[in-house]
Write a protein that binds this DNA or RNA. Structure first.
Length: 706
DNA sequence: TTGCCTCGAGATCA
DNA sequence: CTCGAGGCAA
């Protein structure tokens, strides 16, 4: 630990130096001898770093290392032209100029992992894989897995070009993450330059976890305490917080560690590995740290042994792990298995049982959601669990609450499900106090007093107050102004609360008639804030049909459906006139959604709302400019039979991307029918109506040419 | 659901 | 200095 600490200090020294150096514009003639000397120092320091961090087998003392490090610094200081970006002294750059981290798309998405919590689910996982592989003609009575501990930190991706660290990204939503290169460079376990240049692929993306050791965490918090700053709640938050610093000088002072667990994009070469475990070995040779605890196992039973072994080992480790991960070792098998939307099929996280704690139910409140659904929420005596304080736990619905038999005053067991959402597991009847009362089921809304009903067969209670219920109104407005809807910047929950309570806003249209002076009179609002808000509101008047449809908060209509409706109808007028039967024909719209849409627009009150918005100057683009050009815009396509090259879902997605609507039934409005193998009755139907029919080859041709 | 960082702006005190 | 909003990660 303290050895690591010495190295961070060296990092600090480097920080001071490069600040000075960058201001000098010296251009001293450099002798070949000097160049050689600097190169040697680079190589030596990289080698010692590698031995220290990756192999955990240093061959020189810290003092000697620091001496070499300082030699290099002195040389670079005297000869700035010799400083290269992968020099061991260049870990800390300057403060990020552009105040936000740039968003960058991952070339291969960073998926998350399926989780299992017990042996049963794990056996099913293994069984599924065998079946899938067998159907691909692979003999696989025993699957070979790579087992490794699952570190509890923050996932990142490192991109190396010609062996040099070029870009570091956070995982983000898996699709795109943030560019944290300057912060990643300060982590000493992350090589700026890979070893064995000749052998390493030209492009290599390393994926792994940034984390903090328990000791490092204690030490950091002690430091924060000494400086009178706030301490971190747990190592993971400290890690995430450190990576988000705009000043990488601060990141450099944090005891961040790194451990790689896989490879993303990479150039291929003759001896490219065939196994995941071979990749891990290559990473070690390239100087990238990987877990020392990984093992290759034959069959899922062996994996379970590994799990038990790691579970025992857990407490002795210097860092948090929340489970172990099993991956199919054979890369070809991985490829055959492929992925589902959010996770690869060939890997699974076997999670350790979540930490459980006792707490006391101080009360149960009912929360009223945007659509009026009442959700019981247990208010708990604040309790530490897994490094955070939990004081609320949702009980989901009345059935759930009654099944668990929750009473006020009960002592209960809680845990964080999936390590995120607090969950009330059970009540301890033995500890139930005599005064405890069952939680009353409300018959009226706790917010507006309107009648509460429970529709047949539905578990949910619903407040009938509609928008005259303040809770529903507040949430509708929040939804309307949210980023993906009308995007009114600066209109947060607190402000909405006040606007509604003052009765200045009774519906979304009222937002467009707010008075600046009145606004400025609110607490924590001044002239400046009021002006900014009004500008943001004004700005939101120019919007798109998709945003408007989504923002209206029609039940069952989210982002995706809103986009779908825009693509198909193009105008609000057309959407409002569509009947349920027609809507249901749209691929992606079922009877429930169709019903929701028609009943929303049938409501006179909603119709008035829309005309009011228009009168107040709201305009929307009926084509969606936020997506690529639509060459099949306005066309309606139907698919029949089996396609050889694409799944039907893939084909539909491609068509929609080009602006076409995809329906499941033939009608006179359909423009084109794609006929695959073994077509159904749709073909005959289309024939009668004289609709254009094309086969798979023509279809593919059309996809490329448009 | 909680905790963290950053930003802008209001509040407070000298 | 403090707060609210917004964004991010698990």
């Amino acid at each position: 630990m303290y050895q690591h600490y010495n190295y961070w200090l060296s990092g600090l020294v480097a920080y001071c130096f490069c600040e000075v150096v960058s201001e000098q514009v010296l251009d001293i003639m450099t002798s070949p001898k000097l160049v050689k000397r600097v190169e040697n120092l680079h190589a030596t320091l990289h080698e010692h770093n590698y031995r220290y961090y990756v192999l955990a087998d240093p061959v020189i003392s810290d003092q000697d290392y620091d001496k070499l490090f300082q030699d290099l610094q002195t040389l670079e200081h005297q000869n700035p032209s010799l400083i290269s970006t992968d020099s061991p002294t260049q870990r800390v750059g300057s403060i990020a100029k552009d105040r936000l981290f740039r968003r960058v798309t991952h070339r291969i998405p960073m998926l998350s992992l399926q989780n299992v919590f017990d042996q049963q689910a794990l056996l099913e996982f293994d069984h599924r894989l065998k079946q899938r592989l067998q159907s691909e003609g692979i003999d696989c009575r025993v699957l070979q897995y790579v087992c490794e501990p699952k570190l509890d930190g923050v996932a990142i991706s490192l991109f190396y070009r010609q062996g040099r660290l070029e870009q570091a990204l956070t995982r983000g939503d898996g699709h795109a993450g943030e560019d944290i290169t300057s912060n990643a460079r300060t982590i000493r376990l992350i090589p700026l330059k890979l070893r064995h240049q000749g052998y390493c692929p030209g492009e290599l993306e390393v994926r792994g976890e940034v984390y903090i050791s328990r000791q490092g965490f204690e030490h950091l918090n002690q430091q924060m305490l000494n400086r009178n700053e706030r301490v971190f709640a747990n190592p993971r938050n400290a890690t995430a917080g450190s990576l988000r610093q705009l000043d990488s000088g601060i990141t450099a002072q944090r005891p961040l560690l790194f451990c790689a667990y896989s490879v993303g994009i990479h150039s291929t070469w003759v001896n490219a590995p065939k196994l995941h475990s071979q990749w891990l070995e290559i990473l070690v040779e390239l100087g990238v740290p990987v877990s020392r605890d990984y093992e290759v196992k034959q069959g899922i039973e062996a994996c379970m042994d590994y799990y038990k072994q790691q579970l025992l080992k857990r407490t002795t480790l210097d860092h948090d792990i929340d489970g172990v991960v099993y991956k199919i070792d054979d890369l070809h098998q991985q490829q055959l298995l492929g992925s589902v939307s959010h996770a690869p099929r060939w890997a699974v996280a076997h999670k350790f049982p979540a930490e459980e704690t006792m707490s006391i139910v101080k009360g149960v409140d009912y929360q009223v959601g945007r659509t009026g659904v009442l959700t019981p929420v247990a208010r708990l005596k604040p309790t530490q669990i897994g490094g955070v304080t939990v004081s609320n736990a949702t009980l989901h619905n009345i059935d759930e609450m009654q099944r668990k038999d929750v009473c006020v005053g009960d002592t209960v067991t809680i845990r964080r499900a999936g390590d995120v959402i607090p969950e009330l597991i059970s009540v301890s009847l033995a500890k139930r106090p005599s005064y405890s009362q069952p939680v009353p089921i409300p018959t009226t809304c706790p917010v507006c007093g309107a009648r509460v009903v429970r529709f047949d067969k539905l578990v949910a209670l619903r407040c009938l107050g509609g928008l005259s219920c303040k809770a529903q109104l507040k949430q509708s407005i929040q939804h309307f102004s949210s980023r993906k809807a009308l995007n009114i910047d600066g209109l947060g929950v607190q402000l909405i609360e006040q606007l509604v309570d003052q009765q200045w806003v009774r519906n979304v249209a009222d937002l467009y008639q707010l008075d600046k002076n009145k606004l400025a009179s609110l607490p924590r609002m001044g002239m400046k804030s009021a002006e900014n808000l009004l500008t943001a509101i004004e700005h939101s008047k120019q919007t798109t049909l998709t945003r408007l449809i989504y923002g209206l908060g029609i039940r069952e209509v989210g982002e995706v459906t809103a986009e779908l409706l825009t693509r198909h109808f193009h105008t609000l007028q057309a959407l409002m006139q569509a009947d349920a039967a027609y809507l249901e024909q749209l691929d992606g719209v079922g009877s429930v959604v169709a019903q929701s849409i028609t009943s929303f627009f049938a409501e006179p009150h909603n119709q008035k709302q829309l005309t009011d918005l228009q009168k107040l100057g709201l305009v929307w683009l009926e084509e969606n400019p936020e997506t690529s050009p639509k060459l099949l815009q306005g066309q309606i396509w139907v698919l029949t039979g089996r396609l050889r090259t694409l799944s039907r879902e893939q084909a539909a997605t491609r068509l929609r991307a080009l602006g076409a609507s995809v329906l499941t039934q033939i009608s006179s409005r359909v423009t084109t029918l794609v006929v695959g193998e073994a077509p159904g009755s749709k073909q005959g139907h289309a024939e009668k109506l004289g609709i254009e029919q094309i086969n798979e080859a023509e279809f593919l041709e059309r996809l490329v040419s448009t």
